[in-house]
């Protein structure tokens, strides 16, 4: 399999911070992987994802997405990415259809292909009947599903998910995971997934990386990691590596 994301010796130090948020971190994500990026609070996940999305450049090192960096090929790099933030990044006073139509156009989609894409995702995630209702009238689970669709519309090569199932009912959670698995299986979509739901991560991801203090601690196939650390689950591996101490800021 070929590499889609190549992170090379990336360091990021915020001004006035005592230590770097990300420190000389290198990792590769192969095409078609469902890649779980795990780590405690303050481990550097958000900073790494922000750099992957092109929000700001690394202090040092390089990030290649499908062979391009944001610094030299911003448009190509960004077009390859779909982002599903942890927050419900939708306009509450617009309907689901209006939200997705707007965001689809922002990705450069238009016409029937956009409409069909919106309808297909809404239909699969059980929202077609409610698509002309304002987002503010939706339940938490429905909002999460629309939030997910917004990142999928342009069929990105890399889908970045930040806690996509937090605070949703079990049915919505199942629908989201099933849809993501289908997109990965049928479209070959690479998924970068971050979550504190380690059981869900173990079930969903075929590759797991654990970072802490801005450094990569371990990375490998999910089952191989469990075996390597002589544990029965990813949760055990995680606790073994990161310890039991609170990570309050």
């Amino acid at each position: 399999m070929s590499v889609l994301v190549d992170i090379q010796h990336v360091t990021k130090q915020y001004k006035e911070a005592a230590r770097p948020a990300v420190s000389d971190l290198s990792m590769k994500i192969e095409k078609g992987d469902v890649f779980g990026l795990l780590g405690p609070n303050g481990a550097g996940k958000t900073t790494l994802i922000s750099m992957l999305c092109g929000l700001f450049p690394p202090g040092s090192g390089k990030i290649y997405i499908n062979g391009h960096t944001h610094e030299t090929h911003s448009r190509e790099s960004k077009q390859a990415i779909g982002v599903v933030p942890q927050e419900i990044a939708l306009y509450p006073k617009l309907t689901a259809w209006e939200n997705l139509n707007f965001l689809g156009h922002m990705y450069g989609l238009k016409g029937n292909s956009l409409k069909e894409s919106i309808r297909m995702h809404l239909s699969v995630l059980g929202l077609e009947a409610n698509m002309h209702q304002k987002i503010m009238s939706y339940s938490g689970g429905m909002k999460r599903r629309v939030n997910l669709i917004a990142g999928l519309l342009h069929n990105p090569q890399l889908l970045i998910l930040d806690e996509p199932t937090v605070g949703v009912d079990i049915q919505s959670k199942q629908a989201i995971i099933d849809h993501l698995k289908k997109m990965n299986r049928e479209n070959g979509m690479t998924i970068l997934y971050t979550s504190h739901h380690l059981e869900e991560a173990e079930d969903f991801c075929n590759v797991i990386a654990i970072i802490d203090h801005g450094e990569l601690i371990t990375q490998g196939k999910t089952k191989e990691l469990i075996a390597q650390y002589n544990c029965s689950s990813i949760e055990e591996v995680y606790l073994k590596i990161t310890g039991n101490k609170f990570r309050d800021k």
Partner: peptide, 19 residues
């Protein structure tokens, strides 16, 4: 910015400027 829409728009090619 607070609800993450700005973050999403910033990750789209050229969209933040357009918005």
């Amino acid at each position: 910015r607070e609800d993450g829409s700005a973050f999403r728009l910033l990750t789209m090619p050229g969209s933040y400027f357009i918005v």
